[in-house]
């Protein structure tokens, strides 16, 4: 159902080994809470992203469970350690079964 869902991720292009880097993620999503009513007074069914994960070369950085109280266009900012050159994988899980992914490469010098 969800249209125009576009993940946006900001990761530094390079880092030194073991450095803590800040990652910012944003995904466009209405995050319909299931509490709102439409013009006819009927409840609009819940439709949210219920889980977000970030992993680096397969090792988990953060795994977030989202509830309807997360704002429209869920935004997360967190810190990760990069031991070596590799790829960050970001995954968002939608209530309707869709999975949105993004990857970012980082070079460790």
């Amino acid at each position: 159902m969800a249209e125009d869902v576009k993940p946006r991720v900001r990761v530094p292009g390079k880092a030194t080994a073991g450095e803590a880097i800040t990652i910012k993620t944003l995904i466009s999503h209405a995050m319909e809470s299931g509490q709102r009513k439409n013009g006819d007074g009927n409840l609009i069914p819940r439709s949210i992203i219920n889980r977000f994960t970030c992993a680096f070369n397969g090792a988990t950085v953060i795994d977030v469970t989202l509830e309807p109280a997360i704002s429209t266009n869920p935004y997360f900012e967190f810190q990760a350690i990069v031991p070596e050159t590799g790829t960050f994988e970001f995954t968002w899980y939608d209530d309707d079964g869709d999975v949105y992914t993004d990857t970012q490469n980082i070079t460790v010098s």
Binding site: V61, I62, V64, T65, E67, A69, S71, F78
Partner: peptide, 26 residues
């Protein structure tokens, strides 16, 4: 809130600090 739960952050081995920023509805 009508549903009190907001979010759960689980930190993995590569989390540099156990902290997170997000935006919530109140």
């Amino acid at each position: 809130n009508p549903v009190p739960a907001v979010a759960t952050f689980n930190f993995g081995p590569l989390a540099a600090s156990q902290s997170a920023v997000t935006r919530i509805r109140l």
